[in-house]
Simulated scan of single mutants.
Amino acid sequence: MANDSSLAGVVVNLFSGSYLNRRVLLTGHTGFKGSWLALWLSRLGAHVTGASLAPATTPNHWDLLGLGAVDHRIDIRDPDAVARVVAEAQPEIVFHLAAQPLVRRSYAAPIETWATNVMGTCHVLEACRATSTVKAIVAVTTDKCYQNNEWVWGYRETDRLGGHDPYSASKAATELAVASYRASLMSRPGAPLVATARAGNVIGGGDWSEDRLIPDLVRATGNGTSLEIRSPHATRPWQHVLESLSGYLLLGERLLTGQNAFAEAWNFGPDSHGNRSVSDVLGRIAESWPEIRWHMTTQSHPHEARLLSLDSTKAHTLLGWQPVWGIDDALRHTSEWYRTWLASGEIVSSRQLDQYIEDAAVVGTSWCQA
């Protein structure tokens, strides 16, 4: 697959062919979300350069994929290393995903979290300012960048930023840093257009991160043990990783065409059916994976928000973005990925990407047109 794809005999055009032969820099490419994005960009015909730390776990999705992208192992807290990679890659668009992404880790390593998420982003933006080829930047933050008031309705892009834990607060600060660069340092004609993207709780095969529900569940199941659950009633906007990535790619397409109106903050969350409690998600997984077991912990843990949801009306209305897989499809494909890998070691990521694109064509998404 490159510019287009043949599905059931019908040729579909993906993202208007915007990524074919494009030079793309992807920070955080060895992570869960980054590795899936690297796979998709490669299939779109982009020339991908990755910049990231080594994968944090063994196994990991990046190594299992075996992609041929240019692979730089750097720490984005090092401004000279970031500048060197950007200057060498001469990218046309940058997807900035590198981060310290874990809430619980941020309590143990707050300085690392702030330095990586805020200053690391500034280092990327500075390097892009100094590189004339860069036309567009999509900086990925999180749904947790909002000041969480435990509202029953979803947060909109205009709602107040904030955060209780170092991770959430650092991502709110990252949003402010990007907005500042956009307004003051990247406002001249010809400067890169920069947008931020805020997604919900992404799930999917190939995630082995610590302190995440499904990776922890997979590890427990593989070991034949019961998973300890901290907050069974906590509600999150669950979505498959490909849903958020389709939003990032669609946003990048708009920026590459020089549409300044899209250089803003964007939510990419599931529909209301995707807002589910941890216990509900586990129950739905168990329907197709009866071997899983879990129990509620009796220990106290650091504070985490109990209720969080996103309002993605802006992306629906102005970008034409829409979810393709609902919560049941997302959980089914995630369970299938891990069950297949545990049984045979087969990696079904490419096959699932094909299925997602085929389903997107049926739905009639704006980025996948016959």
Rank of each mutant, 00 (worst) to 15 (best):
T174M: 14
A286M: 06
L14N: 07
G205C: 11
I327V: 08
Q352Y: 02
S246N: 15
G154W: 06
R284M: 10
L185G: 05
A172H: 02
D354S: 12
G274Y: 02
S42M: 12
E175V: 09
L185W: 12
V70C: 10
E287V: 11
D328G: 05
K314D: 04
L65S: 14
N223W: 07
E358M: 06
A130W: 07
Y107D: 01
L249T: 08
P270S: 15
A139L: 11
L39S: 07
F32V: 02
W321V: 02
A127I: 11
D80H: 09
I76R: 00
W294E: 03
Q259K: 15
C145W: 02
S180Q: 14
S6T: 11
L331K: 02
T257P: 12
E253W: 06
A130L: 13
R276D: 05
A265S: 15
Y248I: 15
I347R: 10
N149A: 13
R43M: 12
D328S: 09
Y356K: 05
L353S: 10
S272Y: 02
A109H: 15
V12D: 07
A98Q: 02
V194Q: 03
D280L: 04
T297C: 10
M1N: 12
A183C: 10
L319A: 11
L7Y: 07
L307K: 12
K33I: 07
A199I: 02
C145H: 05
L102R: 14
W289S: 00
